[in-house]
Design a protein around this nucleic acid. Structure first.
Length: 798
RNA sequence: GGGCAAGUGGCGGAAUGGCAUACGCACGGGACUUAAAAUCCCGGGUCCGCAAGGAUGUGAGGGUUCGACUCCCUCCUUGCCCACCA
């Protein structure tokens, strides 16, 4: 058994003392920026971190050996609510608690042997970092991209703070799952919608992103093309606009439905007999939160308003209803209902006995009739009951109707987006103060750049409930107006922490730069990130925000790239007994205890070997034993080297170099390790000389760096193995003089014959027919056809 | 309801049009040992057979092909994301 504890400690010290992984830009040399999503400093690393960072570390070390300048930094996403909660619980301060956690985590990361340039560490709660959050905010404010508005916002009562749309999951808070309420508040927003076209369009540039992440972002941005249609009221000139993506069904609109919150509702019902009933219904819906409205799903309640509108395409008079299934947040808050071709409208119409008209007849199958339909027909077909558009395929009619409506002024072709502006105000203490001052005389004023940072006070009386903690710190709140120098008040909300992580990858390029968020020259060299690695849970929020910030920096002229992350790898989760490791399930395996028992190299090896990076990984205590056994097996080779290696082993060696190099490039670590194991098995069978063994050690080094450093030194080398060149294969060893030809009869393997490589088809045929087994099979039924796959296979059809 | 993945031995997984189950775990056998552990070597899809060998086999059913885990169609199951989105 090799002494992993000693060896690992020894080499970690050497790496640190020699500054092995410090990196500087070197113009003219190929760079490689490898980034793993930085952690929230919870205090302990978990297997998810181990997996994420091990994958990254292997790639970083591999690229260094291939001769790249590799930027591989690490930092801490240190602001956020858990620090406040922990501080309350442990009767300490978020600052102290966070710094202690960072200290522990840094030690654990070092114990894993990761090749970070620790000189570049970035901690977001340092004022040298968050001052640039404030700087960025002010730049956005100047350009109208940061603005304050009052609106109904998502409010988590447990966290006592607002939430972005992106942070509401199934109607609950993304962090504590408490039911989210709606609250009218004045809050700061970032105008991400200004960038919606580019955020959508540039997804096309991301060829090396997982398709599903692209799909999720596309979905989230939610572009839909349709027509806004103007319906005039029967009794006045007032107009109700509706948005539809199915303008081909406009002739089938038999009523309108407004959201209960629609601003026109009160006017429409005024003085009507239905007024009282409608008000009652609105009141009832208002009490229900959005989450409940969505959750109850199928139930579609509504009432008639007593008013009528005119369908502009055929001047038909149709009733106006209000219903809870129409949402004010989407479209215009009003819809045209086409019960025959929309399932929700169909259910509602059946329930309230509203009329239906078929306008699209399927091309094949039964002819539909509204009276006998049991569900809406949402597929394609041919227009009927649609005036001059009758007989057209509906997809074609869609284009023509839209153009016609636009020309006659009864509608307008319009694009609707689902993406909303990003709410960044948080009523919490542990975050970046928003650099804004309110003056009674001058109004809202940005903090002058020279006054940055607006420092977060060390002390604030926070309890986790009621209002922004900073509002209670008088020396923070009270200030002077930058314009009139009179008494003024500071903004007391802090920024959402997703702001911090939206540009940290740029800060890593020049972490100590004092003139700007980052040094333009450094960023020009290092950016974009060549490979980004992290969890799928950030597929929307973080990655969308980071893309937004990058485009903003481009507009500021600070960088000249459109997208921050060239390639993205989303690693799978680590499971135990088929479930995600979690405290509540009690199935956590602590990386620390594994390192103590087997060493970091074994842990690294196992986590790469057990599954491909993108799939879920099932933790297996016995599997880790196997990984440990393999490393010991490699360790023992050093004592049994021969003078000269067997040709068989050389062939396998060169095949392995080819395979491992290719696999590393594609992040197929599990199969790369499998071939290293095969090579090891071959060495046990045939023996190896020093050169063969050295190349095995070089290939294993990115995976098990400590063990390989020790072996490398033992083989007589002075330099760290991490700076050695990656081995190259010699193609001459890959070619054999003879090949094994698989002989199939009707697709079934019946024989294998060994022949010289260059055997011609005629000669091969002779050899095959001479084979006893094949001859026996062909005796009864003569062959119809021979199919030759050169140097591989022959299939005989009989 | 929409979108995207995935389904292969007892288990993790390999093979993406050409020998299904590489590599590892677990299991069985052997060597070494007084013995055990460790180590080294060998064997394992399933069914029939002492064996040689044969049949069968990648969620189910169909198709394309000389040949399909791989491509196409239908269905089932599981996971993830979005969702009264008009």
């Amino acid at each position: 058994m090799y002494q992993f504890a000693e060896i690992e400690k020894k080499w970690q010290k050497v790496w640190q003392e020699q500054g092995c992984f410090k990196v500087q830009k070197m113009p003219g040399r190929m760079k490689y920026y490898l980034l793993e999503m930085f952690p929230y400093p919870s205090g302990k690393i978990h297997m998810g971190h181990v997996r994420n960072y091990t994958i990254g570390d292997v790639v970083a070390r591999f690229k260094i050996m291939q001769g790249y300048q590799v930027l591989h930094p690490m930092g801490f996403d240190a602001f956020g609510q858990p620090a406040e909660n922990a501080a309350i619980k442990n009767n300490t301060k978020p600052d102290i608690w966070t710094r202690k956690c960072i200290e522990w985590m840094r030690q654990e990361l070092k114990r894993m042997g990761f090749s970070y340039d620790w000189d570049r560490e970035v901690v977001t709660c340092d004022k040298e970092y968050y001052r640039w959050n404030q700087w960025i905010f002010l730049k956005m404010f100047e350009r109208g991209l940061a603005y304050k508005k009052a609106s109904n916002v998502n409010w988590c009562p447990a966290c006592a703070t607002t939430l972005a749309n992106e942070e509401v999951i199934d109607g609950g808070c993304w962090r504590c799952h408490t039911k989210v309420e709606q609250k009218e508040l004045e809050q700061w927003y970032l105008k991400i919608t200004e960038y919606k076209e580019r955020l959508l369009e540039d997804l096309k540039l991301l060829e090396h992103w997982p398709r599903r992440v692209i799909a999720m972002q596309t979905n989230w941005i939610g572009k839909s093309e349709g027509v806004e249609i103007y319906f005039r009221l029967q009794e006045s000139d007032k107009v109700i606009s509706v948005f539809t993506t199915r303008v081909d069904t406009i002739f089938g609109a038999t009523y309108l439905v407004l959201a209960p919150e629609h601003p026109s509702v009160l006017e429409i019902i005024r003085g009507k007999p239905q007024e009282r009933e409608v008000l009652k219904f609105i009141d009832k819906v208002a009490k229900e939160s959005k989450a409940i409205r969505a959750a109850e799903g199928v139930k579609k309640e509504g009432v008639f308003t007593g008013a009528y509108a005119i369908n502009p395409v055929n001047n038909e008079v149709i009733p106006i209803w209000i219903a809870d299934y129409v949402l004010m947040e989407y479209g215009t808050g009003a819809i045209m209902a086409v019960p025959t071709h929309d399932q929700r409208d169909f259910l509602f119409a059946k329930e309230h006995r509203l009329s239906m008209r078929l306008v699209i007849q399927p091309k094949e199958g039964m002819r539909l009739m509204p009276e006998t339909m049991t569900a809406a027909y949402e597929g394609d077909g041919v227009q009927v009951n649609s005036g001059q558009f009758n007989g057209l395929p509906n997809q074609e009619a869609k284009q023509k109707i839209a153009a016609w409506m636009q020309n006659s002024g009864i509608g307008r072709i319009k694009v609707h987006w689902r993406l909303r502006d990003w709410l960044i105000s948080r009523q919490r203490y542990w975050g970046t103060p928003i650099p804004i001052i309110y003056c009674g005389k001058c109004g809202t004023a940005p903090v002058p750049y020279e006054d940055l940072p607006v420092e977060l006070p060390k002390d604030a009386p926070f309890t986790g409930e009621g209002g922004s903690p900073l509002s209670k710190v008088e020396e923070f709140v009270n200030t002077r107006c930058p314009r009139c120098k009179g008494q003024a008040l500071r903004e007391t909300d802090t920024m959402a922490t997703f702001f911090d992580s939206s540009w940290y990858f740029l800060r890593f390029c020049s972490p100590h730069f004092t003139q700007l968020p980052f040094d333009i020259e450094e960023a020009r060299y290092w950016m974009p990130v060549d490979q980004y690695i992290g969890g799928i849970e950030h597929a929307i929020l973080h990655l969308l925000y980071a893309r937004f910030f990058t485009k903003f920096f481009k507009d500021l002229g600070l960088i000249n790239i459109d997208e921050p992350f060239r390639r993205l790898l989303t690693q799978g989760m680590v499971l135990k007994d088929g479930q995600v490791m979690s405290k509540s399930k009690g199935n956590i395996v602590d990386p620390d205890s594994i390192i103590t028992k087997y060493g970091a190299d074994t842990l690294r090896l196992f986590i790469l070997f057990a599954a491909p990076p993108e799939t879920e990984l099932e933790w297996d205590d016995r599997g880790i034993e196997g990984a440990f056994k393999f490393l010991n097996r490699v360790w023992r080779i050093r004592k049994n080297l021969r003078e000269k290696a067997d040709l068989a082993v050389l062939k396998i060696l060169h095949r392995t170099i080819k395979k491992v190099t290719e696999d590393f490039q594609e992040f197929k670590f599990n199969t790369a390790i499998a071939s290293l194991m095969e090579l090891t098995n071959a060495i046990y069978q045939f023996g190896a000389d020093k050169e063969v063994f050295e190349r095995l050690v070089l290939m294993l080094a990115p995976i098990a760096p400590h063990l390989c450093e020790e072996l490398w030194q033992g083989l007589g080398h002075q330099e760290s193995i991490s700076r050695e060149s990656w081995p190259v294969y010699d193609a001459r060893f890959l070619v054999d003089e003879t090949v094994t030809i698989v002989v199939q009869v009707n697709g079934k393997v019946r024989a294998k014959i060994e022949t010289p490589r260059d055997t011609g088809e005629d000669r091969l045929k002779e050899l095959i027919l001479a084979d006893q087994k094949i001859a026996a099979l062909l005796a009864e039924t003569p062959p119809k056809k021979f199919i030759f796959v050169p140097q591989k296979l022959v299939n005989i059809v009989i």
